[in-house]
């Protein structure tokens, strides 16, 4: 019995040392990771939203007020009077080998302004550079799927659909 206790103690000491070591490393890397994600989101917002990029001083981005279960986050772009101008969605959907995360901006007329793929590890085809022909469209009729990667295209289509669908609710 005593022997078992000692071995258990040895194992927990090892686990404790390792846990402490990891928390030290985490202290250094966690802020870097956080800053990176924030930077990436900000860059993507600049890319998809032309009006905000040109009027950074007067326009504001509301990151908190709306939350949906279907999307990861919603950013409302407001002008100087607090009027809603555009809405930006971060949507993810399951693709062929990974989860595809996209950022999609929708204008007041319920048209898609632009979209970028934030993260994906799809092995087939290059969805990051493919033009899905959705800029400026208000329906999925012209959606140009990436030939050879049906499942990834379906996921991207779902992202666009969710964004368009929710915009009717959020831009009222």
């Amino acid at each position: 019995m005593k022997k078992n206790l000692i071995t258990g103690l040895v194992l927990s000491v090892f686990a404790l040392i390792c846990g402490l070591l990891l928390s030290v490393v985490n202290m250094f890397t966690a802020p870097v990771i956080e800053a990176r994600t924030e930077e990436k989101i900000n860059n993507s917002i600049m890319e998809v939203c032309e009006v905000y990029k040109n009027n950074k001083d007067t326009y504001t981005i509301d990151k908190e007020s709306i939350k949906h279960d279907e999307v990861d986050s919603v950013y409302l772009v407001k002008d100087e009077n607090g009027e809603k101008v555009e809405v930006i969605y971060v949507v993810s959907a399951k693709g062929y080998a990974s989860t595809i995360q996209m950022m999609i901006s929708v204008t007041k007329e319920h048209k898609i302004e632009r979209s970028v793929v934030i993260s994906s590890a799809e092995t087939k085809g290059d969805i990051k550079t493919h033009d899905f022909m959705m800029d400026g469209k208000d329906s999925l009729a012209d959606f140009d799927k990436l030939s050879g990667s049906t499942i990834s295209s379906k996921a991207v289509r779902k992202c666009f659909y969710t964004a368009l669908d929710l915009s009717y609710e959020d831009l009222k």
């Binding site: 070591l21 990891l22 490393v25 890397t29 870097v32």
Partner: peptide
């Protein structure tokens, strides 16, 4: 885990 954290950062 250390490799993972460094790579993620």
């Amino acid at each position: 885990t250390i490799v993972e954290m460094i790579m993620q950062a």
